[in-house]
Design a protein around this nucleic acid. Structure first.
Length: 464
RNA sequence: UCCAGCGUAGCUCAGUGGUAGAGCGGUCGGCUGUUAACCGAUUGGUCGUAGGUUCGAAUCCUACCGCUGGAGCCA
């Protein structure tokens, strides 16, 4: 008796170098066309952007049922992989048997025609079956792998920093509270909510950054990175913000700001190169249907060094540009979106790393420069997205760090463990945070962050 | 959160005070080694929700909800 066939992915079937006498594929019908004596089925299993053409002859015992199959139905097909007689594909599968696994009636929302991303966002559970979104999420998967590959190849350790945290990483936005207390009747003491009776016996939150914990591990394993979910309760309603997103945060001991900038630049270029190499069909689709200039822009970014400029020089450039900005640039103020866009899109026309910002507009942990006015911070700006990386050399001098905390009205007692890192064997160290989704947007050309997240969480929206 | 725009058929949209429309999709028929096939017919609506103005509202007004773009915050 023959051994049962094990399924072949459509990706592998399409890459076959020779005909195969007996093969099994499984997937979902994208479209079906009737011919005189047979029916053509376009089958997709998500392994590839491309479909496999199934030829279903009218001699199949269930041919009548096959002719009723519509877009969205799932089938298992066995048959022979043969050279296609038609144009447009090298191989096709002549079916010996078609098992109808699951039908889909005419209420199936995905039509053969193109759909807008906005409509597909409303059916987030079905949109990965579309060409655009299956491509986006294959690219997302590949690039998540590339993140690990980049750091592992360079001797970085992967640290799982906590998702539930007791520390409010100062200045990183609003927090989601984590609690098991009865919200209708929380335990109270002296008229206030008594967090000592909560699950962790203290107020706790979903993390906004793993940086502080990553620093502890950098000062032990020398080079580390985190890659995990991050949560911000900011009421931000833009195409670049989500309440839940993934962030990559490398942290390196014995590393100054220049080393930090080098790493960030190398990392961004590595991810672009990886997508170009390993997702060629997906990138081609993005270039054709999302952003016509995508590939030339990415190649340009990969080939050229990023522009580096101090905050002070950037402000001077903006002032001398002669451009009338809605908000004029001035020393001591944050760069506005329009300023960042002018720098990357109009002036330098490439990614720009701005560094050495006034200490007043940056968080307490950044290292104060010798001028006493600026801190060793970097913002990496890319065309079309804006800030994609934010980082700094960390303040490793205990007295300076304590002084910074006082200037930011923080109680050093709340950060005893963090200060210990400076008390015992402190070293210069640096790191940055890169928003994974913003990187995906830059690489795929997709302009809304909700479209690079499988099930996006944004203010007022947590369906699915 | 602020500013602007938009919510009409399953989808994309037209309709700006007087009988609710088109293309695509779906369905039926025809043709066909087809390729987002083609040809013909047909189906399809609480005009976002709730009030208001008017003889009459998809159309004008108010509020709310949702979406999109921009701003702020940031990754």
């Amino acid at each position: 008796m023959d051994k049962p066939l094990s399924p072949t992915s459509i990706k592998d079937a399409l890459q076959s170098v020779a005909p195969i006498g007996a093969i099994q594929v499984q997937g979902w019908i994208r479209t079906r066309r009737d011919s005189k004596d047979f029916s053509f089925i376009e089958l997709n299993d998500g392994s590839s952007l491309r479909n496999l053409q199934i030829v279903a002859k009218n001699t199949l015992p269930n041919y009548a049922a096959v002719q009723r199959l519509s877009t969205g139905a799932s089938i298992t097909v066995t048959g022979a992989l043969v050279a296609s007689q038609g144009k447009g594909q090298k191989w096709e599968l002549v079916a010996d048997n078609i098992d109808i696994v699951g039908t889909a009636d005419d209420s199936y929302p995905l039509q053969k025609k193109g759909h807008t991303p906005e409509f597909l966002r409303e059916i987030a559970h079905l949109r990965p079956r579309s060409n655009l979104f299956s491509s986006i999420f294959r690219a997302r998967s590949r690039l998540a792998f590339a993140v690990h590959q980049f750091f592992q190849e360079r001797g970085f350790g992967y640290v799982h920093t906590p998702i539930i945290t007791g520390s409010d990483c100062e200045g990183a936005g609003e927090l989601f509270r984590v609690s098991t207390m009865d919200i209708k009747n929380p335990p109270q003491k002296n008229g206030e909510i008594d967090f000592a009776q909560d699950f962790f016996a203290r107020p706790t939150y979903l993390t906004v950054s793993g940086q502080l914990e990553a620093e502890a591990f950098a000062l032990a394993l020398s080079k580390v990175y985190t890659f995990g979910p991050t949560f911000r309760a900011e009421n931000s309603n833009t195409s670049r913000h989500a309440s839940e997103f993934w962030m990559i945060e490398p942290e390196i001991a014995f590393c100054d700001l220049n080393g930090n900038m080098d790493l960030a630049e190398e990392f961004v270029k590595y991810l672009i190169a990886d997508a170009r190499e390993h997702c060629p069909e997906e990138m081609e689709l993005f270039a054709r249907f999302v952003d016509r200039e995508l590939l030339s822009r990415l190649d340009f970014v990969m080939e050229r060094p990023f522009q580096r400029i101090t905050y002070t020089d950037a402000v001077d450039l903006l002032k001398k540009s002669g451009v009338k900005f809605e908000f004029p640039a001035d020393y001591g103020l944050n760069l506005q979106s329009e300023h960042e866009r002018w720098l990357t899109e109009k002036h330098f026309k490439c990614p720009v790393t701005v560094f050495d910002f006034p200490k007043e507009i940056k968080p307490f942990y950044m290292r104060v420069n010798d001028d006493g006015k600026t801190v060793a911070a970097i913002d990496l700006l890319v065309p079309g997205i804006g800030e994609i990386v934010g980082g700094s050399q960390r303040e490793e001098r205990l007295e300076m760090l304590e002084a910074n905390m006082q200037r930011h009205n923080m109680d050093p007692a709340d950060y005893k463990w963090y200060l210990d890192l400076r008390r015992y064997g402190t070293v210069p160290h640096s790191g940055f945070g890169l928003g994974f989704e913003r990187m995906l947007m830059f690489i795929t050309g997709i302009s809304n962050i909700r479209d690079v997240i499988p099930f996006a969480r944004t203010p007022g929206s947590a369906e699915f």
